[in-house]
Amino acid sequence: MPLPAEKTELEDSPIPVGKAASPWGNATFRSVALAAALVAVAILLLLVWQLVSDSLPTLRAFGLKLLASEDWNAGAEEYGALPFIYGTVVTSAIALVLAVPLSIFTAVYLTDLAPVWIRQPLVSLIEMLAAVPSVIWGLWGIFVLVPWLRTAVFPALRAVLGPIPGVGSLFSGPIFGLGYLSAGIIVAVMIVPIVTAVSREILRSVPNLQREAAYALGATRWEVTRIAVLSYARRGLLGAAVLGLGRALGETMAVTMVIGNSPQISASLFAPGYTLASVIANEFGEAGADRMYTSALFELGLILLVITVVVNVGALLLVRAATTKGGSRFA
């Protein structure tokens, strides 16, 4: 935007230039801006310090035993993180298995296949999907999705997949509706927009020359996508998936509302479970003055933080390496 012509003359300048520039103005403004930028760093340091120092009581009392124990019973001072870690990993895995293929295919459709007029509306719809808050997905999950899954989908899944040896154990046992699979499906819906958006950015950064070369060799549309686009972009697409994983691991409200909140480890995906984020959401307020209980929950928070930061940094590096622009707006 060019500046309006009349404002370029000094006398009419909206900028007060009359007085000699004070040497303090620059230094002050610069330090204020620097301080603001350092707030981001300070928040990160504060977060790590707070979580570590508040987990110290349980870290001291139980050490790494907390990570290996299955029993969670605050009344009896038993704090085992395993059911929560298991639940977090299982729901995220389900979400990835469902969301990643869908998202990549959608991104392929958006970049290479869809008629041009359909692309922008579709992107807008996916952005709308991303804007729906977690608590609303949870509400919809409780009252619409879970009842439908319980009565229609899960019994069918159990009938078809249950008898298969091996895989069958995942799809057997009583059906409650609330459980790992329901939570995983909701999380899948929630991470689809980010995985699709990043995948689309990655696929768009694939040079057209790649595609043209493949077409020139007589490849069909799908062969072009497979040989020239997907294999060229595979590292970036992996990054997109890992970014989705980072989101899935920390998803809280919707999961809390549909996973059943039961601290146990079950082979069946129909069984109710618990995740790190949802046990914090449910029990942190109750823990109150109980120092060990609060400390155990802080430690669960620390575990969750470490896992998500490692995953996210990995994803950032993968995506960053894959896009020419450097840096992604989606982290």
């Binding site: 981001a40 977060l47 707070q50 920390g250 942190f284 969750l304 933080l305 950032l316 982290a331």
Partner: peptide
């Protein structure tokens, strides 16, 4: 970017 990836429940805890 790291802060943006921290689960929102963690901010509640902090």
């Amino acid at each position: 970017d790291v802060l943006n990836g921290v689960p929102s429940i963690i901010w509640g805890v902090l």
